[in-house]
Simulated scan of single mutants.
Amino acid sequence: MEEAFVDSAPIRSLLDRAAGLDGEAGDPRLKAIMRDLLDAAARVIVRHDVSESEFWGAIKYLQNSAGEIGLIVPGIGLEHFMDLYLDAKDAAAGLTGGTPRTIEGPLYVAGAPLVEGFDVNLTDDPDDTTSLYMTGQVKGPDGEPVAGAIMHVWHANSKGWYSHFDPTTEQTPFNNRRRIKLGADGRYAFRSKMPKGYSVPPGGATDILMQAVGRHGNRPAHVHFFIEAPGYRQLTTQINFGDDPFAHDDFAFGTRAGLLPVPMRQGDSASITFDFELQRARHAEDEQLSTRARAEA
């Protein structure tokens, strides 16, 4: 079957009606996006001669994968694509510089304790694994310290589990999670335990998909950050540990140049010095987190 089949009058009419284009009700932008999505899906079916069994097998996979959508989206590169798209829009608008953005991932939890001061402790975990000490400064585009910034920090524990999502239930809800209010000098320092990289749940929807396309589902050890401050653009980023074996082969495509510090390891401790650079906000909404749905403890 030729792909031109999708352009035939009956199919165009079907897709127009399915997207609501034959009526005045509804959201025009959503209807236009829906029409393009349906068109793209129809063309994939025709181009690859998708069988009825394959079609309904895909639908069943989607039905069974709802609990792992937050892993599947980064795993198939769409979350990283959004970063690249936003980078390209910034470049077209003449906006350059600043610490690179990268994926948020699905494991942020809103409402972490807000703490102030230098040398903050993130962990409630008494385990005897390697301690992590991280320090640096949040600066603006001219090198000025960013006063009054709030740094959200979250990462996995030494077993690769995130609090709130840990099936062992051994962690407190906000273990390795804090919001740190920085002072006038924009400097931060926190202590926790060295996180471990993780893999997607074995046998789960993401694992099934990764194996089907010949890929793995591993992430390197990393630490996530949101940074927000009045007058500056909110930053969503993370550092991947540069000496992790998956640092350059992250299944979620979270690795970016400039975000790969190598911890200085000595005995049972490790340290990282890392500065963040924010861009100035052009509009009030630049200062805000996206409206993405996030977990709450």
Rank of each mutant, 00 (worst) to 15 (best):
Pro141Arg: 07
Gly143Trp: 06
Glu144Gly: 04
Pro145Phe: 02
Pro145His: 04
Ala147Asn: 07
Ala149Ile: 04
Met151Cys: 03
Met151Trp: 07
His152Cys: 05
Val153Glu: 02
Asn157Thr: 01
Lys159His: 09
Lys159Ala: 11
Gly160Glu: 06
Trp161Ile: 00
Tyr162Cys: 00
Phe165Tyr: 05
Asp166Gln: 08
Thr168Cys: 14
Thr168Ile: 12
Thr169Glu: 15
Thr169His: 15
Glu170Trp: 09
Glu170Gly: 13
Gln171Asn: 10
Gln171Trp: 09
Thr172Tyr: 11
Phe174Asp: 02
Phe174Gly: 00
Phe174Ser: 00
Asn176Pro: 00
Arg177Val: 02
Arg179Lys: 10
Ile180Tyr: 06
Lys181His: 12
Lys181Val: 09
Lys181Ala: 13
Gly183Gln: 13
Gly183Trp: 14
Gly183Thr: 13
Ala184Ser: 15
Asp185Cys: 10
Gly186Thr: 11
Gly186Gln: 09
Arg187Tyr: 03
Tyr188Gln: 07
Phe190Ser: 02
Phe190His: 08
Phe190Thr: 03
Arg191Met: 13
Ser192Arg: 09
Met194Arg: 04
Tyr198Val: 01
Tyr198Trp: 06
Ser199Gln: 07
Val200Trp: 05
Val200Asp: 10
Pro201Leu: 07
Pro202Gly: 03
Thr206Ser: 12
Thr206Glu: 14
Asp207Asn: 13
Asp207Val: 02
Ile208Gln: 15
Met210Gly: 00
Met210Asp: 00
Met210Ile: 00
Val213His: 03
Gly214Glu: 05
Arg215Met: 09
Gly217Ala: 15
Gly217Met: 06
Gly217Gln: 04
Pro220Ala: 11
Pro220His: 11
Ala221Asn: 05
Val223Ser: 08
Val223His: 07
His224Pro: 01
Phe226Cys: 01
Phe226Thr: 00
Phe226Ala: 00
Phe226Gly: 00
Ile227Lys: 08
Ala229Asp: 01
Ala229His: 04
Pro230Gly: 04
Gly231Phe: 04
Tyr232Asn: 02
Thr236Gln: 14
Thr236His: 13
Asp243Arg: 01
Asp243Phe: 05
Phe246Ala: 12
Ala247Leu: 12
Asp250Met: 14
Phe253Gln: 13
Gly254Pro: 09
Gly254Ala: 15
Gly254Ser: 15
Arg256His: 12
Ala257Asn: 10
Ala257Gln: 14
Gly258Lys: 10
